[in-house]
Structure formats: structure tokens, C-alpha cells
Amino acid sequence: MKIIELKETITASNDRDAAALREELRQNHTLLINLMASPGAGKTTLLDRTIRDLKNDYRIGVIEADIDSDVDARKLEQLGVKAVQAHTNGMCHMDAGMTRTALNELGFEEPDLIFLENVGNLICPAEFDTGAGRNVMILSVPEGDDKPLKYPLMFTTSDVLLITKIDTMSVFDFDPELCAERARKLNPSIRIFLLSAKTGEGMEAWEEWLRGEADKWRG
């Protein structure tokens, strides 16, 4: 027996798969958005509204990752976009391999913009690169402004933080400035948007960012 020194990260094989997938998507001019949040943060509601607003300008696809159900995929398909259900076989996150399988099922030649609705949880999805071009996280007002302190990695790996359900701000003790300060301390370049998918307030700024990114990838 001999010792082989490695110093390699545990997820090295996933990191390589993710990098290869991201490059393929780039060459294909497809922006894959990895949407992460807690259960009940309103991922599907946000997607529903966003897709309605963008579907005339972009060819949109959706991957719904759930441990075991296709409720959300069916709901979004009613908007006229193609949606597939990715099953994670009981795992609490999507990895690059599972994302590739779902993309193959969806067919990623056609869409300009694909949303991957990751499994609802703020821990595991942050640890596994899916190969997405951009990582977007949702934090809804009822969850509290202390979440950056509790789930730092999620805030570190996200390009965008969407603070949602702002129509409930008066009921909950949520300080958006304090939350933003905590998030920026972990990730100085994070983009933050406050919105309510229910009332539509703030949706425009988020969608403008999204259009800008999708256009960059579309080339």
C-alpha cells in the first residue's frame, strides 16, 4: 500500500461535470438559471409571474426538481412553456449530472432561457454546482432577515437575492436593509431585488436584470 496525496475537493467530479455543462450551454446560447429557496418561499409563484411576463420574448423551459411529485411542473406547463420534472431519487439537491439528464429530456437546443427550480432547502443546493449560468436565491419576508447568518454558503454562491412577499412586510419583523447588509457582507457583488410576485411590485427590476442576462447569453 502506498499513500497518494490528493488535496482534491470532495465534489471535484461534480465541479468538472458542471463546468462542462455550463460551457455547452454557453455555446448553445442558453441561459440556465438555478433558482434556490426554502420550501414555501414562493419559487413556483415567482416563476409563474416571471414566465407570464417574459414568454413572448424568450423561448422558455422549466426543470422542476422535486424529491417525488410533478405538481409544480404541471402547473407551469399550463402557461404554455415546456416543463420537465427531474427526480432527485430522494436526494436533497440537484447536481450537474441530474441537471444534464433533465436538460436532455427538455431538449436544450431550443430554449433561450431555462429555469431550474431546485429542491426547496437552503443548505444542500448551495454545495452542488448544477452547471447553471446564474444562481438566484429567494428569501421570503416571513422567513426572517437573519437567514444570511444561518445559511451563509447559499448567500455566498448566489448571484442574485430576491427578497419576496414584500407585501407582507408590515406583518413581519423584517428589516430589508439589515438583511441586505448581512448578505453583502458574505457576498459583496450580490444583486438584491425586493418584490412581490402577488402584487407585482418590484417585478420589473428583477425582470430587467433577467432580460439583460438572457440577452447576453443569447448573443
Binding site: 500500500m1 502506498k2 499513500i3 497518494i4 496525496e5 488535496k7 482534491e8
Partner: peptide
Amino acid sequence: CIIKEIEAETAPDPSGADQEV
């Protein structure tokens, strides 16, 4: 969270690139 090292038996490598410690 890093794989520091493994202890293993290996087949001879023609390139001789493995480091013996």
C-alpha cells in the same frame, strides 16, 4: 471538505508519474 490522501495498491504506471511517499 477535502480529500487529503488515499492509501492504495496500484498497478505499475508506465509514465512513472505516481509519487511514492
